[in-house]
Every structure is written in structure tokens, then in C-alpha cells.
Design a protein around this nucleic acid. Structure first.
Length: 418
RNA sequence: CGGGGUGUAGCGCAGCUUGGUAGCGCGGCUGGUUUGGGACCAGUAGGUCGUAGGUUCGAAUCCUAUCACCCCGACCA
């Protein structure tokens, strides 16, 4: 990509409403713009980060045999009445009626739709297990949206669902998802922890949350020295205390703030009973399917990753989710033919090496370009001016540290992929 | 929904107390000098002061209503 074809919407100032670092940096770096409370448009740089995260999730889920599907965001009320969540879910369910006065909602989660989908096609244990996921926009009419995309009313979530003939088969799948999630968060280079959780109004009997540890997190976690533990709701019940301080006093556990980026549930037969999703077993009995569901907040991960990886100059992307692996900054390229052709050469070289790169060919000063790309957080910076053009070299700088190194072109690829 | 706060140019703000017809910084545009860490000079565009109504000779300023947005709380992935 060249900046002349890839709009960069960085800005110096940030609206006063942005409080936390990730929200401020996402606006300054031109990743998002607000449409209204809790609703954000994603600009090119932001969308590239989302796509990187989605790629990792897709790969890891495919690895455990989970196939991708896509379901409609608009869901008929009938399904929600069948599961009895039309009343139970509360005002967070964004509802509306169509021209025929028929009731609908915008999906915050998809247990009803997928159960309906599966029960129409699956009738035998021989067809199970089935594992499906989708990555799509979800809607929750939040009381108070907050911190940019951290708590939004419209957000992108990956939701997966599994269907089984027995509890033991569900238990196995649950562990598979748990390990896939570990791989995902490891590849995203997030500092995270897994805690025991309450299954809330999703339902079921076992549940774990995946939290990115961050000061700006909204959830309270109680952790032991190995960072294992539980969320506050579970701790209250387990230790029969009703506030954080007394639990800490009683147990000696450490309190940390977490951003919930993933949540997995063993749903059991809750939905299959209510919605009559039955199969015939090997011994010809008719039973309700066992289900699990598994969510990851894709857009929330973007904010969480920034909370964990930034400095006073801006974002510092983990390699796996950076919008680009390397940025080429040319100095005076519009005036100096040698600089321009040398930069283009490097640009092509990186293309051939399958390294994602952006080439800043704007007529802007060196300092301006550096500030922009340090703000955006691309991990590798290649500087090309008249000296590099003459010497047939490049100057390399990492987003971390201030050292600039003039190196041979051949050494560039090693530097980046290291 | 309860409490608090804010709406004035793309962004950050001043002006409001004490009514007299809107200003600053950043950003934008034009021209020139610049470009190795957010340059400088000169010029220029851009606002029915959130919206509606009222008081007044006259309203950004006072009054009423309303909408939007933010913060704290309850709720929630």
C-alpha cells in the first residue's frame, strides 16, 4: 500500500470525551470515528487490525474442526419467546417491529438462531458432533456505552456453537475450545488469564472467562499467585461475602482489573430442551442435544491490545496484529528521483517477500511522518533519504527504542522477520 | 433510571456572571522559503453559537421546553 492510495486519518488533538488510552489512541491514529454513542465506524487502519485478529481466530478454530457460517443479525421474536429469553434478556435486547407489526430483535447472541438451524437438519447422533462459528456484528442496547469500542452497542464478536450427543462429548469439546483460545490469545500476544465465571443469562453449568489484565478493565478478578482465579460474582458466592474488600481479607487473593475478551460456556441442554432440538441415539432413544457456546470479542480485543501496548508516542502493535509489518518512510521523495526509485525498489522487495508494508509517499516532513507512524504503531520502520539512496542501503528503526541503524538491503528481511 | 456536567468553525477552547450582532490555538486552502524528529512567512476560507419557543429595540449571553454527548452509580460480554 502507498499512503497516496490508502488514506491515513491521523490527528493531533483528541476529543475531550475520550478518557482511556486505547480510546484516545484509536481516534488519534485514525482507526475509528464515532457515529453516535457506542457506535463506531472503522477506518482503513482499524479494519486491517480487526482482519488480522479475525485471521488468527479463523485459523485456530479451523484447526479444531470448527467451520465458519454467517447468520442474520435480524432475528424474529418467536425464537426468543420459544427459549423464554424474550422476557428474560431484558432491555439490553434491541427490539423493533417491521411494517407488518411483527416483532424482531437485533442479535446480541445467537443460541436461538443456531439451535433452530441445527434442529431442522440434524436428527441422528451420527451427524454429531457439529462445530460452527461466525464472526459478525452484535447489538446490545447498553445502559451506558463506555471507553470507545471497549463497551459498544454495536460490536464484532466471534461466536461458536457446538452440538453433542452426550455430556462427555461436550466436555471434550469444551477443553478443545479452551486450548484453541489459549493459542489465539498467545498468538495475539496478550497478557491474559482464565477465570471461573458465572454463566449469566446465557445459561449452562460451567463457564470460563478470558481476561486481559489491564488497569482500565471493568471487571474485578480475584487471582492467586499463578494468576488463576475467578471473577467477583463467583467469589461472592464461594466465600459468602458480598464485597471485594472482605473477600480479599478472607482469602488473601490478589485483586486485578480485567477486560473480558473471551467467554466459554457449557450450555448443556438448556436450549435444546426449550426449543426441542432432539436426536436419536444409538440405542434408539430420543434425547435433547448437548450444547456449548464460545465467544470472543473481536473489537474489544483491539482496545485491550492497545491498553497493554502503548507509550507516550502512541500504539506499539504486537507483530501478529499490526496493520502493517513495516512502514517505508521516504524523505523528500517527491523532489529527489533517486530517493523515490530506491524507495520503490524496497517496496517491491518487501512485496516479493510477502511482508505487508505501507509506503509513505506523501509530501510531508520527516518529523511529521515519523510521528504519524509511531502513533499508528507499526513495529518496523524503514527510512530512505538521499544518503540511503546513494549508498544503496536503508536505515532501520524499531518502534521500540530510538536507535537508528543504516544496514544493507539484504539484511532488512532478517531484521523484520526476527 | 438516579446524581453531576457539557453542547460556540474539523479538533481543543474563550466569550455568558453584567444582553449591543462572535474570537483564540491547532487543523484546512493559496503562494513562497523549507523537509534527517510534529518548520516559517504572507494571505485566505470556514460558525443560522445543539434545536424550538419566549422575554427584549436588540439574545451565544436571560427564561422555558426539548435533543444529543460525557462522567459517577445500578446493569452487562
Amino acid at each position: 500500500m502507498k499512503v497516496s492510495n490508502f488514506p491515513v486519518f491521523t490527528q493531533k488533538d483528541v476529543p475531550s470525551e475520550a478518557e482511556v488510552a486505547s480510546h484516545q489512541l484509536m481516534i488519534k491514529s485514525g482507526m475509528i470515528r464515532k457515529l453516535s454513542s457506542g457506535q463506531y465506524s472503522w477506518l482503513p487502519i482499524g479494519l486491517r487490525v480487526i482482519q488480522k485478529i479475525q485471521d488468527v481466530i479463523r485459523e485456530e478454530l479451523n484447526n479444531i474442526g470448527c467451520s465458519e457460517i454467517l447468520m442474520p443479525s435480524v432475528q424474529p421474536a418467536e425464537l426468543w419467546k420459544e427459549s423464554e429469553r424474550w422476557d428474560d434478556y431484558g432491555p439490553e435486547l434491541l427490539r423493533f417491529t417491521d411494517r407488518h407489526n411483527r416483532e424482531f430483535c437485533l442479535g446480541p447472541t445467537f443460541e436461538e438462531v443456531i439451535t433452530d438451524l441445527i434442529k431442522k437438519d440434524v436428527s441422528s447422533y451420527k451427524q454429531l458432533p457439529i462445530n460452527l462459528f461466525q464472526i459478525s456484528s452484535k447489538f446490545r442496547d447498553e445502559i451506558r456505552p463506555r471507553f470507545g469500542v471497549m463497551r459498544a452497542r454495536e460490536f464484532i464478536m466471534k461466536d461458536a456453537y457446538s452440538f453433542h450427543e452426550s455430556q462427555s462429548c461436550l466436555d471434550m469439546a469444551y477443553e478443545n475450545y479452551k486450548s484453541a483460545y489459549k493459542n489465539i490469545f498467545k498468538r495475539l500476544m496478550l497478557d491474559y488469564t482464565i477465570v471461573d465465571a458465572d454463566s449469566g443469562n446465557i445459561g449452562g453449568n460451567e463457564s470460563n472467562e478470558f481476561h486481559v489484565i489491564a488497569e482500565t478493565g471493568e471487571d474485578d478478578l480475584l487471582l492467586d499467585d499463578e494468576l488463576n482465579g475467578m471473577n467477583l460474582e463467583i467469589a461472592k458466592v464461594k466465600y459468602s461475602e458480598d464485597n471485594l474488600e472482605s473477600i480479599i481479607k478472607k482469602t488473601g487473593l490478589t485483586h486485578k482489573k480485567g477486560i473480558e475478551v473471551g467467554h466459554i460456556f457449557k450450555l448443556g441442554q438448556k436450549y435444546s430442551e426449550k426449543m426441542k432440538a432432539k436426536i436419536t441415539t444409538k440405542d434408539s432413544k430420543s434425547i435433547n442435544m448437548f450444547m456449548g457456546c464460545y465467544g470472543i470479542g473481536v473489537t474489544r480485543i483491539v482496545a485491550a491490545a492497545i491498553e497493554q501496548n502503548h507509550d507516550s508516542n502512541g500504539i506499539i502493535w504486537p507483530k501478529s496484529i499490526s496493520p502493517f509489518e513495516v512502514v517505508i518512510i521516504e524523505i523528500d521523495g517527491h523532489k529527489n528521483k533517486e530517493v523515490r526509485s530506491h524507495s520503490s525498489e524496497i517496496y517491491d522487495l518487501l512485496q516479493n517477500s510477502k511482508i505487508s508494508r505501507i509506503y509513505d509517499d506523501r509530501d510531508a516532513s520527516f518529523g511529521n511522518k515519523m510521528k504519524d507512524w509511531e502513533l499508528i504503531g507499526v513495529p518496523n520502520i524503514v527510512i530512505i533519504g538521499k544518503n540511503e539512496a546513494k549508498n544503496k542501503t536503508i536505515t532501520y528503526k524499531s518502534r521500540l527504542g530510538n536507535e537508528k541503524l543504516e544496514i544493507k538491503i539484504e539484511d532488512l528481511i532478517n531484521k523484520i522477520t526476527l
